[in-house]
Design a binder for these strands. Sequence first.
DNA 1: CTATGATGTAACTTCGATGATTACAAGAAT
DNA 2: ATTCTTGTAATCATCGAAGTTACATCATAG
Lengths: 134, 134
Amino acid sequence: MKRNSRLSLALHTLGHMAGDPDRRRTSADIAAHAGTNPVVVRRVLGHLRDAGILISEKGHAGGWCLARAPETISLADVYVALDESLVASDSDAQVPACSVEHALHRRVASVLEEVEQTLIQRLGETSILSIRGN
Amino acid sequence: MKRNSRLSLALHTLGHMAGDPDRRRTSADIAAHAGTNPVVVRRVLGHLRDAGILISEKGHAGGWCLARAPETISLADVYVALDESLVASDSDAQVPACSVEHALHRRVASVLEEVEQTLIQRLGETSILSIRGN
DNA sequence: CTATGATGTAACTTCGATGATTACAAGAAT
DNA sequence: ATTCTTGTAATCATCGAAGTTACATCATAG
């Protein structure tokens, strides 16, 4: 795998599911296709399950599938479900000994906050249908 | 030091310089104030020198100072000088064996590209004067 | 002209974050 | 009961970035 891999893995998998929503996939299948490990798949997709995007079932014939229609799932849903953040909020809770650090933090944090909102809004405009397979 | 540390270190230092532009600072001074190592300081500030934001001089009484008036230096100047990128362009040059990966990459890359432009624009609206000390 | 004090940079070490792996419990269907 | 799946804890491996050491280079003081 590679950089920003959790989000990549999640969106990649959802794209395939959007193209064939009835098929149930095991974490082993998904891992093989994505070139990673089943446990990693379960960890990442687990967040999507908790967010109501996916359903997982144990046992024979178990596996993963979409919890709702693909057109109702946006890229932003996935992004927030994974608790991704470009912002790196950096809340060290360190009492900033220095006034420059103080001012700096406030300025930069506000800009990043705004940018993050822009990102989520833009991601919200696209559903996983637009990256579906088949 | 901590997260996103190159940008933090650079802006922190520039904030102090903006508040007292005539004082020349050695990398040892800066490192002590920032709680890091002189070599790290030289590495980071070296990029700012290459970008025409700082001047460094060797020898006795050498050190670092602003190359131009602080009000002409924006946070975006620093950001691009350090070659920072939220985008993580991820150009693995891997031939995407899979159509979903293809579509996914295109979509996400375009959104990130746009967001990065927004970020740079917003950072460009603020000069290092607004985070100065003293 | 030599000593000193600064930067420039290469090389190596350390550290932290994160993915990969192993192991096993739990649950569901055949 | 067996088999196949997920859930999860614990550990290992890897990689990037910061930290460190070492030393060459250069400028100035004296």
